[in-house]
Amino acid sequence: MHPEIHLALHHARAAELHAEAVAYRRTVKPGRPLRTRVGWTLVEVGLRLATPRPSPAPSVSS
């Protein structure tokens, strides 16, 4: 494949992907800001790490 054809195909595909991304951004409702979501995720992870796990039940041997 000639480099010019490859470059033209690359530009065409990039334009298609850009158009899809713009259309997707217009249809998706803006949710909570990223900073808020990351913050609450970190709080959840911290709570999981800080909470002791219950000790396993003793195994019954016959």
Rank of each mutant, 00 (worst) to 15 (best):
M1C: 08
H2I: 04
P3A: 08
I5Y: 09
H6I: 14
H6M: 13
L7F: 15
H10C: 10
H10D: 12
H11R: 13
H11I: 09
A12R: 10
A12W: 10
R13G: 09
A14R: 01
A14V: 05
A15C: 07
E16F: 03
L17H: 07
L17D: 08
H18D: 15
H18P: 01
H18K: 15
A21F: 01
V22G: 04
A23Q: 08
A23F: 02
Y24G: 06
R25I: 02
R26F: 01
R26Q: 14
T27H: 13
V28P: 00
V28W: 00
V28G: 02
P30D: 11
G31H: 04
G31L: 06
R32D: 05
P33H: 02
P33G: 07
L34A: 09
L34M: 05
T36F: 02
R37F: 03
R37D: 01
V38H: 07
V38K: 11
V38W: 05
G39M: 10
W40H: 12
V45E: 00
V45Y: 01
G46K: 04
G46I: 02
G46M: 13
L47C: 08
R48C: 05
A50P: 00
P52I: 14
R53M: 12
P54R: 15
P54F: 10
A57E: 12
P58C: 00
P58E: 04
V60N: 11
S61F: 11
S62M: 05
S62P: 14
